[in-house]
Amino acid sequence: MMETLASFSEEDKASAMKQHFCPVSGEMLGVMGRPEKMEVEGQTVWICCDGCKDKLLADTEKYLAKINK
Results as ranks from 00 to 15, higher is better:
residue 1 M to D: 02
residue 1 M to E: 10
residue 2 M to N: 14
residue 2 M to K: 12
residue 3 E to V: 02
residue 3 E to Q: 13
residue 4 T to A: 12
residue 5 L to N: 07
residue 5 L to P: 04
residue 8 F to M: 07
residue 10 E to W: 01
residue 10 E to P: 01
residue 13 K to C: 09
residue 14 A to D: 09
residue 14 A to H: 05
residue 15 S to N: 11
residue 15 S to T: 06
residue 16 A to M: 07
residue 17 M to P: 02
residue 17 M to C: 09
residue 18 K to A: 14
residue 21 F to M: 09
residue 21 F to L: 00
residue 23 P to F: 04
residue 24 V to H: 11
residue 25 S to D: 04
residue 25 S to A: 14
residue 26 G to H: 09
residue 26 G to C: 04
residue 27 E to P: 00
residue 28 M to R: 11
residue 29 L to S: 11
residue 29 L to Y: 03
residue 30 G to K: 07
residue 31 V to Y: 08
residue 31 V to W: 03
residue 32 M to E: 11
residue 32 M to Q: 13
residue 33 G to N: 09
residue 33 G to T: 04
residue 33 G to P: 05
residue 34 R to P: 00
residue 35 P to K: 10
residue 37 K to H: 06
residue 37 K to N: 05
residue 38 M to E: 13
residue 39 E to I: 14
residue 40 V to I: 06
residue 41 E to S: 11
residue 42 G to Y: 00
residue 43 Q to F: 03
residue 45 V to H: 01
residue 45 V to Y: 00
residue 46 W to M: 09
residue 46 W to G: 03
residue 47 I to M: 02
residue 47 I to N: 03
residue 50 D to E: 10
residue 50 D to I: 12
residue 50 D to K: 09
residue 51 G to I: 02
residue 52 C to D: 15
residue 53 K to E: 14
residue 53 K to F: 06
residue 53 K to I: 15
residue 53 K to L: 13
residue 53 K to P: 08
residue 54 D to S: 11
residue 57 L to F: 12
residue 57 L to C: 01
residue 58 A to T: 12
residue 59 D to Q: 11
residue 62 K to L: 05
residue 65 A to K: 14
residue 66 K to L: 09
residue 66 K to H: 10
residue 69 K to Q: 04
residue 69 K to R: 08
